[in-house]
Design a protein around this nucleic acid. Structure first.
Length: 711
DNA sequence: AACACCGCGTTTTTT
DNA sequence: ACGCGGTGTT
């Protein structure tokens, strides 16, 4: 019954006996289906209570989706007993439940990477180190890398070059401890240590989670793998699902080798390959297979489909990035005329900077679009300010929050005053809040500063008292007004002012919605909300999306699929990126990224490049990406904007049948943006005709013919 | 405390 | 090119 809708390989994975399994799931092979069906199987056939199950993902979105799917397939009420979540979310849950055993304060808060950066910078200053010799960014990178490998400050191999970084690491740890805050890596590391060092808890959780399921295993880092292993213990069943060919996060610590390590650590593990693809056309799959086949280090997999051959992959050689963008916009307009929904179309690119030209073209065409991967809601300046008030109210020791709001909005507490507090705190080794209390009791400050400081302390105290009994969203509302943040951003000039106030007001809604959704059992609501703000993107509220073309980086496209995909900027130096071209390992990761991009497409794939591109203000000539050459020519059709011989190998079909140019040299023309001008030169033909025009006001420019009107 | 200017760096991103 | 962060000016 459960197995009916599955293919043989999927069935094998779902009904496997209890034990360890490695599921190598190619792109579009239905791995989420397998995971959810396996959970159902465990509950319904193996009669294992959801209480004994844990499923781990990387993103909140994936976790949410899995929970929903399981819930709809299984109408038993006990599903909530199952632990489904991200590594960080589940680790957080463990630490909240056992804060004492983990050596934490009950009110510990989570530091996001921006908070972490600020704290590290302060630590570097406090150590009297030169910020230029020891950049906070590098220190942050160093510390996180150590934590991800499971090493505390004393476990780092000491050598001359690292000595100072180790010192910073140590001081940073002390600062976190003092402020009772922990960073993202700590969630994993501290919960891992908790299980490692506390035999009783370890036994408890090992007895509880009899089956563990892990998604996107190729993205796990060292500490995450250790975390899974300790939970799995000797007897629990561990099912990992992953695809070595889609490992694109090596640069942030993901260990692709974990897959091989798993096979060594669990030699009895059953291996299932899911190679039948249900997403893409045969043409697209052949291209993807051909590209990824160039990588040497692979476990090996070959996607196939029972579906259609489909259309060839269109490769477009643009003259420059603008031309490329116009080509894409034109094609989208065609698709639109053929009744395609815009949300079924995605434009993917290697780096965020590429989105601008594409956006400009879409805007000129009047095509609605949405760019993914901007600033998270909870990362916005004004939201972080508001959250800092909440944090300080919840925990007076939170120095990061203290620093952020002591003079935001400005209340006459200058740099000198804050430095004095900092110095005093450092001297006697207490938090800023405590240092401030002591200094005030000694009447250390001048009258003016003293008044300001006292009113600040009163403000926070009153907030604490006034909000003690209120509902969460009322607390937020009160704090927004009492802090003066709303007024402050209201008075700020510029276009941002209004959005900022709106964002702040939205925080009240976010808090309300959060408390409606029924939080986790034993955590106080405010602490739970703050943790939520740190751990969730907050994207799902804004997810009420319309019919828009989707613009995003290749990285953010992982896990998604679209009927039509444009892969823009397929040029050497850009993709593969020049910073990753010379290291074979990194180059292979770029290639996997290309594989991910290609396999996002269901029906039709366009790949494009520009012969000239403006990068950092300079014109750069790049060859077409090697990935284009790795695709068998018979799978592609080439479209060029001009008749010049392309550097690509010739392909069978070349579609260049456009009408004659409507302009001649010397003609007076009008452009909707640049105004009036004279035609100097013509290049290309038809749809892709480029015209060089000397404009009366803006000088000589090369523009697309369809944007010119003859006079 | 608000504003102007200068110099630098510049892939990818989640939690 | 462009934006950000740091420094200096009013």
């Amino acid at each position: 019954m459960i197995l009916n809708s599955l293919n043989p390989a999927q069935q094998e994975a779902v009904r496997a006996p209890l034990g360890h399994q490695l599921i190598l799931a190619g792109a579009g092979s239905g791995k989420t289906r397998v995971l959810t069906h396996r959970i159902i199987w465990l509950i319904e056939v193996e009669k294992i209570s959801p209480f004994h199950l844990m499923a781990v993902t990387f993103t909140n979105k994936a976790a949410k989706e899995m929970r929903t799917r399981v819930q709809t397939m299984l109408q038993i009420p006990a599903v909530h007993l199952m632990w489904i979540g991200t590594f960080h979310g589940l680790a957080h849950r463990l630490l909240r439940a056992h804060w004492q055993e983990a050596g934490l304060s009950q009110h510990f808060q989570i530091l996001d990477s921006d908070d972490q950066y600020r704290l590290i910078r302060r630590v570097i200053h406090a150590l009297n180190l030169d910020e230029d010799r020891f950049p906070p960014k590098e220190a942050q990178w160093f510390i996180n890398a150590q934590k991800e490998e499971g090493r505390g400050p004393h476990q780092v191999e000491r050598d001359y070059t690292r000595q100072t970084f180790i010192k910073i690491y140590e001081a940073y740890e002390a600062a976190c401890q003092r402020a009772s805050v922990i960073d993202f890596a700590d969630l994993l590391l501290k919960s891992y240590r908790l299980l490692l060092e506390n035999a009783e808890l370890r036994a408890h959780y090992q007895a509880r989670f009899r089956c563990l399921l892990v998604d996107e295993f190729q993205d796990t880092n060292t500490i995450q793998y250790a975390w899974l292993k300790i939970l799995a213990g000797e007897h629990n069943a561990l099912m990992i699902v992953g695809d070595d060919d889609q490992s694109i996060y090596g640069w942030r610590g993901a260990r692709i080798e974990n897959i091989q390590r798993f096979s060594k650590d669990f030699p009895d593990a059953m291996v299932v390959r899911l190679e039948q693809n249900y997403r893409s056309t045969e043409t697209i799959l052949k291209a993807a297979n051909a590209i990824i086949a160039q990588n040497a280090s692979r476990l090996g997999k070959n996607l196939w489909t029972a579906g259609q051959v489909g259309e060839p992959i269109t490769v477009y050689a643009g003259f420059n990035e603008t031309d490329e963008a116009f080509f894409i916009a034109n094609r989208i307009r065609d698709l639109q005329n053929h009744h395609a929904a815009l949300k079924e179309i995605a434009i993917l690119y290697r780096s965020n900077a590429q989105s601008r030209v594409l956006e400009e073209a879409l805007m000129q065409f009047g095509i609605p679009y949405r760019v993914y991967g901007g600033l998270r809601y909870f990362d916005r300046q004004e939201i972080k300010d508001a959250l800092a008030y909440l944090r300080l109210v919840a925990n007076r020791l939170d120095d990061t929050a203290f620093e952020r709001i002591i003079n935001t909005p400005t209340r006459g507490i200058g740099d000198k005053t804050v430095t004095a507090i900092r110095d005093h705190a450092k001297m006697i080794g207490v938090s800023l809040w405590q240092a401030l209390e002591t200094l005030l009791s000694q009447h250390y400050f001048a009258a003016r500063a003293e008044t300001a400081l006292i009113s600040f302390m009163n403000l926070i105290q009153t907030m604490g008292e006034r909000t003690a009994t209120e509902k969460l969203h009322k607390q937020v509302e009160y704090i927004l007004n009492a802090s003066g943040l709303i007024d402050h951003y209201h008075k700020e000039k510029g276009e941002k002012s209004l959005t900022r106030v709106e964002n702040l007001e939205e925080l009240v809604n976010a808090a309300y919605q959060f408390s409606q959704e029924g939080t986790q059992d034993d955590i106080p609501p405010l602490a739970a909300f703050l943790a939520y703000a740190a751990l969730e993107s907050g994207e799902d509220q804004a997810e009420a999306y319309d019919d828009c073309v989707q613009l995003m980086t290749l990285h953010s496209a992982k896990g998604l699929e679209f009927p039509v995909v444009f892969l823009a900027g397929c040029e050497e130096e850009l993709f593969p990126h020049y910073l990753s071209m010379n290291d074979p390992k990194k180059l292979e990761e770029e290639r996997r990224l290309c594989y991910v991009g290609v396999t996002r497409a269901m029906r039709k794939l366009f790949m494009s490049y520009a012969e000239v591109r403006r990068i950092y203000g300079k014109e750069a000539y790049h060859r077409p990406s090697r990935f284009l050459r790795e695709i068998p020519v018979e799978l592609t059709e080439e479209v060029r904007f001009r008749t010049k011989v392309s550097r690509l190998q010739p392909s069978k079909k070349t579609t260049t049948t456009f009408p004659e140019a409507p302009f001649r040299i010397g003609q007076e023309v009008q452009h909707r943006v640049f105004g009036e001008g004279t035609v100097l030169d013509l290049e290309g033909e038809g749809e892709h005709l480029q015209v060089q025009v000397r404009f009366a006001n803006v000088g000589t420019k090369r523009v697309i013919a369809s944007y010119l009107i003859a006079k």
